[in-house]
């Protein structure tokens, strides 16, 4: 048996597909869309909490790609990072317009955030149904700048370089925000499991009456 004939051919690279797209090849456009749309849809869905918004974002992202002046420069990063960057801007515009963001924006100072939580609770049930739901809520409740980096790097497994392109920041910032975001997540989950411990943060420091 011819093994080579049985082996599915690897998907075409983004660069080759883009060349074909620029020459008017509809199937290349469809192939690129099918390779990339799901991750962008999920990113937009996590960020906006709205399926219609996520659908609109995916459509707009690929409409932008059709334009000759779409602004994609392979020298500055991969197509994946570029597409996520467009999606991010569209999501932010959607959120600003509709105020339908799933989490309240917070003006937390990055430097003032806690280090990764140290807790005896191993959070072992995070992979169970309720644990997953709690973790998803915790992700959605993160301030936007932390939520987007967790969604990109931890949920969609985008590498740091692509995430930096998408977020328009240096790789070091991606790393530090991710570190802070994970700390916030652990903090949030620990608080949910141990409300009494969370109340310690509300302990009055002086009496006013």
């Amino acid at each position: 048996m011819n093994e080579r004939a049985m082996t599915p051919s690897p998907p075409e690279t983004d660069d080759k597909l883009l060349i074909r797209i620029r020459s008017g090849d509809e199937e290349a456009f469809a192939a690129l869309y099918r390779q990339r749309q799901a991750a962008i849809y999920r990113f937009a869905l996590h960020m906006s909490g709205s399926m219609p918004a996520a659908e609109d974002v995916v459509q707009e992202v690929f409409l932008v790609l059709l334009r000759e002046d779409c602004g994609f420069d392979p020298e500055r990063g991969t197509l994946s990072g570029y597409l996520f960057g467009i999606a991010r801007k569209l999501v932010l515009r959607h959120v600003e317009r509709g105020r339908s963001d799933v989490a309240l924006e917070s003006e937390l100072d990055e430097a003032a955030l806690p280090e990764l939580a140290v807790n005896d609770d191993p959070l072992a049930e995070l992979t169970e149904r309720e644990g997953i739901a709690a973790l998803r809520r915790a992700v959605q409740a993160l301030p936007r700048r932390y939520r987007e980096v967790v969604i990109l790097c931890d949920l969609e497994e985008v590498d740091y370089a692509d995430a930096a392109v998408a977020l328009g920041c240096p790789i070091g910032t991606v790393r530090s925000r991710l570190h802070r975001a994970r700390g916030l997540l652990l903090d949030k989950l620990n608080q949910e499991r141990n409300p009494r411990q969370a109340m310690r943060g509300l302990r009055p420091v002086r009496c006013l009456t």
Binding site: A30, Y33, R34, Q37, A38, Y41, R42, L45, H46, A54, E55, V58, Q59, L116, A117, V118, N119, D121, P122, L123, A124, L126, T127, G131, I132, L135, R136, V139, V150, D154, L155, E156, E157, R182, L185, L186, L189
Partner: peptide, 28 residues
């Protein structure tokens, strides 16, 4: 370290739950 490992596994589980999500066919 246990907390980090649990969080990593949990995030993977969240991602796994959504792995089949994608834009509806009408978008294409």
């Amino acid at each position: 370290l246990r907390s980090q490992s649990a969080l990593k596994a949990g995030l993977r589980a969240v991602a796994g739950q959504m792995s089949q999500a994608g834009a509806p066919a009408r978008v294409e």
